[in-house]
Nucleic acid binder design. Structure first.
Length: 310
DNA sequence: TCCCAGGGGCATC
DNA sequence: GATGCCCATGGG
C-alpha cells in the first residue's frame, strides 16, 4: 500500500551525513576555489553548495555539500551508501579536512611578504582530485595551454566517455575510467582538440593502469615523496611538473613543488620579486622554510593570483 | 606579428 | 645539465 503522507517528506528522506568542521576551515574559501571562473565539468558550484558525482563501490552517488553551522553537510541527492564513512573519507581527501594547518599559518607569519596569504585566504584547504587516473590525465591535458582551453578539452573528454547521472535536468559526470579510454584511438582523442602527443600520453597511462603497472596504491606504497616522483617521471608524458602536481592533488603529499609552474612563478614574482625563469634555487630558498607544508604554500600562491572574492 | 598559458620528449653538444 | 626545437590552440 502507498502512504501518501510520505510524499511530503521526500526531501528529508535523502541520506545526509554531517562532518564537524575542523579549526581553520573556511567553506567559502574552498567553494571559491572550486568555482573560480573556470568551467570545470567535474562538479557544479551553487551559491552556498557544491554538487559532485562520486562512485562508491561502483554505484554512483550525487553529493551536495554545504555548511550547516559547525558542520559540513553532505546530502546524497542520488543514490545512497551503506556506510557513512565512505562519504566521510572521500570528503577528507577532497577537502583535506583532517589536517591541522595551524603550523602552516605559524610559518607564514614568520615571512614578511607571505604572511598576507594567511590574512586573506584563511581557511582554504588543499582541494584534491581523489581519482588518481583523473589527475594524471588532467595534467597531460593542461600542459602548456591556457586553463580555459584545458577545461574545454576535459569537458569534451568527460562528456563523451564518462558516466553520468541526471538530476533535475542537469547532468553530473564521473571522469572516465582507464577501461573507457583504452579502446580509443589517437585520432578519436585528437578530435577533442588535444595534440597527438597528448593523446598518446593519455592512452599510455590508461594502458599502464589496465596492465596493473600504475595506480594510486602502487605510488602510495613508496616510502617517500622523492621515490614517488621518480616512479611517476618514468611514465611518458609525466615530467617533473606533472609528477609534483599529481602527488599534491591526488595523494596529498605535502612537499610538492611544481618547478617551472607559471602560476607559482608569477605569484613569487609579485610577492617577493624573484625572477620568473631559471629560479629554481630562489624558489627552493623560499620553500625550504616550509618543510611539511610546501604543497600548502603552492596552493596559497595560486590562490593569490586571482583577487576576486574575499 | 609575437608571446605566453598551471610542459614534456627528444636530439644535440 | 643546459639548450633548442617541436607540438598546437587561443587570447592578449
Amino acid at each position: 500500500l502507498r502512504r501518501p503522507l510520505m510524499v511530503n517528506f521526500t526531501r528529508s528522506m535523502n541520506q545526509t551525513i554531517l562532518i564537524k568542521k575542523p579549526p581553520h576551515f573556511s567553506f567559502k574559501e574552498c567553494l571559491w576555489f572550486l568555482d573560480r571562473d573556470l568551467d570545470d565539468c567535474m562538479h557544479k558550484v551553487f551559491e552556498n553548495s557544491v554538487r559532485k558525482l562520486v562512485s562508491f563501490n561502483n554505484s554512483e552517488v550525487l553529493m551536495e555539500v554545504s555548511e550547516q553551522g559547525k558542520h559540513i553537510s553532505i546530502e546524497l541527492l542520488v543514490g545512497s551508501v551503506e556506510d557513512d564513512n565512505l562519504v566521510k573519507d572521500y570528503m577528507e581527501e577532497w577537502f583535506d579536512l583532517s589536517r591541522n594547518i595551524k603550523p602552516f599559518y605559524e610559518l607564514l607569519e614568520q615571512d614578511k611578504e607571505l604572511s598576507v596569504l594567511r590574512k586573506k585566504y584563511r581557511g582554504l584547504r588543499i582541494i584534491g582530485i581523489p581519482d588518481f587516473f583523473e589527475v594524471l590525465c588532467w595534467c597531460v591535458i593542461g600542459q602548456q595551454i591556457n586553463l580555459d582551453f584545458a577545461y574545454k578539452i576535459k569537458r569534451k573528454l568527460v562528456e563523451r566517455y564518462g558516466k553520468h547521472v541526471t538530476y533535475k535536468g542537469e547532468k553530473y559526470y564521473l571522469f572516465p575510467q582507464p577501461a573507457d579510454i583504452l579502446p580509443l584511438s589517437v585520432e578519436e582523442l585528437k578530435a577533442l582538440q588535444m595534440t597527438g602527443k597528448k593523446a598518446e600520453y593519455i592512452l599510455g597511462i590508461a594502458r599502464l593502469y589496465a596492465e596493473g603497472k600504475l595506480s594510486a596504491l602502487k605510488i602510495k606504497k613508496l616510502k617517500n615523496e622523492n621515490l614517488m616522483l621518480a616512479e611517476l617521471v618514468k611514465v611518458r608524458g609525466i615530467g617533473e611538473w606533472t609528477a609534483n602536481y599529481a602527488i599534491m592533488k591526488g595523494l596529498r603529499a605535502m612537499n610538492g613543488i611544481p618547478y617551472g609552474d607559471s602560476g607559482v612563478n608569477n605569484a613569487l614574482f609579485q610577492l617577493k620579486g624573484i625572477a620568473k625563469r631559471n629560479n629554481r634555487k630562489e624558489v627552493d630558498k623560499v620553500f625550504d622554510r616550509f618543510k611539511g607544508w610546501k604543497t600548502y604554500l603552492v596552493f596559497y600562491l595560486w590562490r593569490s593570483l586571482r583577487n576576486q572574492g574575499q
